[in-house]
Each structure stands twice: as structure tokens, then as C-alpha cells.
């Protein structure tokens, strides 16, 4: 197996996730796209771990998983809060930063 096949898969998933973060209106969908990006990163980490025959990559993939879980928890809490305040989970309605 080539290292690159995994890395390219990861790159593709990452770019897809980036697209989703930018193009989706629903905030839950945006969070899912972020998960997609994190999953892509994990594939990279594990692929390098296998390539280097080193356990560190796997350990860091575990850390990424943990932090992804934390991020989803906090992220969904924020989404709920936005929903409660604006009666909408549409990110286009959240534009208080408008200059």
C-alpha cells in the first residue's frame, strides 16, 4: 500500500469538511462538517503511525477523538443556546459581528 492513498483520502475528506463548514446554513450540519475534518486528520495521523511503525500517531488520534467529543458537546450546547435565543439554528441569522 502506498502512504499517499491514505493521505489523499484524508485531504479529500478535509476539503469536503471545509466546504461543508463554509456552505451549510444549519449549524448542526456545520458541526458535522467539522467532525469530517477531524476524521480526516485522524486518518492522516494513523497512516503516518503505520508508516513510521510508531505508536505515537495512534495515541494522538485518540486525543483528537477525545477533543472532538468535547468539541461536539460544547458546540451543540452553543447551538442550543443560539436556537433558544434566536428561534433558529440558521447561521445566516447569527450576524451580530456585522460591521
Amino acid at each position: 500500500m502506498l502512504l499517499n492513498q491514505f493521505l489523499l483520502l484524508g485531504a479529500f475528506l478535509f476539503a469536503t469538511g471545509v466546504y461543508g463548514v463554509m456552505a451549510r446554513r444549519n449549524s448542526v450540519l456545520v458541526l458535522m462538517s467539522v467532525e469530517l475534518m477531524l476524521a480526516a486528520v485522524n486518518i492522516n495521523l494513523v497512516a503516518f503511525a503505520a508508516y513510521q511503525n510508531n505508536v505515537a500517531g495512534q495515541v494522538f488520534a485518540l486525543f483528537v477523538l477525545t477533543i472532538a467529543a468535547a468539541e461536539v458537546g460544547v458546540g451543540l450546547a452553543i447551538v442550543l443556546l443560539i436556537y433558544r435565543n434566536l428561534r433558529s439554528s440558521d447561521l445566516d441569522d447569527v450576524d451580530v459581528l456585522k460591521g
Binding site: V18, M22, L91, V94, D95, V96, L97, K98, G99
Partner: peptide, 18 residues
Amino acid sequence: AARQLQTGRLQFYALLLV
């Protein structure tokens, strides 16, 4: 002109960032 950039939309900022 400067105001156009400040849309307040996070996703647009993310786009610029990427």
C-alpha cells in the same frame, strides 16, 4: 467599501481564512 467585508457572517470569514 470596507464595510462590505464586514458581513458579520462567520462562514464568510472562514472562507477567507481557508
